[in-house]
Nucleic acid binder design. Sequence first.
DNA 1: CCTCAGGTACGTATTGCATCGTACCTGAGG
DNA 2: CCTCAGGTACGATGCAATACGTACCTGAGG
Lengths: 111, 111
Amino acid sequence: MAGRNLVGPEADALELGVVLRALADEHRRSVMTELAADRTDSERGCNSFALPISKQTQTHHFRVLREAGLITEIDYGNRKGIRLRRTDVESRFPGLLALLEAEHRNSTAPR
Amino acid sequence: MAGRNLVGPEADALELGVVLRALADEHRRSVMTELAADRTDSERGCNSFALPISKQTQTHHFRVLREAGLITEIDYGNRKGIRLRRTDVESRFPGLLALLEAEHRNSTAPR
DNA sequence: CCTCAGGTACGTATTGCATCGTACCTGAGG
DNA sequence: CCTCAGGTACGATGCAATACGTACCTGAGG
């Protein structure tokens, strides 16, 4: 029941280059804009993002986001949880999540 | 003497994906952090960035930045000027330049 | 006109990255 | 124990991006 926490780098070790490369991909960015827009920061399942890619590729993308320090993955063995590292990201790169949140509004409410 | 202005997309047509892909590259990001940190927004020469790459590759990178809408290139024929589109970028992606400016401080004053 | 420095155009090698196929692991529930 | 869904590991592949060589253009200044 209690899952193992898979964490990335420490909060102050986040690198802008790694973060921007992570956000450069459409699928990863769509995950991040969705997370940034949800102020409750609740734990999400991996399938709740409806990514149009295979599960192997999803594994890859979530790993990239985790290693960039943007999310935490909680391993339950046969299932996995995703959580945004909001305070860490916000303290290291203030304003970044606001940009992603604005982008989420753009993509969900085209006009 | 008067150079032709090579512009990219309109201010409200900037796309986050294109911008982030442009900023994902180390060399292009170093150019942008330097531009963001210079509040005078003066016109810069292409060689004033001391990029450790060939001039053909520099042409490529500046083109990417221009097509992303981040800079304007001024063509003098046998020389070229670079200028940050600060107000356009700031109005479309508020806070982005502040992130780059902070990164510039990090890279120039390690500790 | 000639030279030179700065830039571009085109082709190409190489690298990086996203994607998926196959095989295997894990825990829940029959 | 068996099955099944969710997830990972490893390898292969295809494509886009970076990088540079060669050739050519442009304007300034002899």
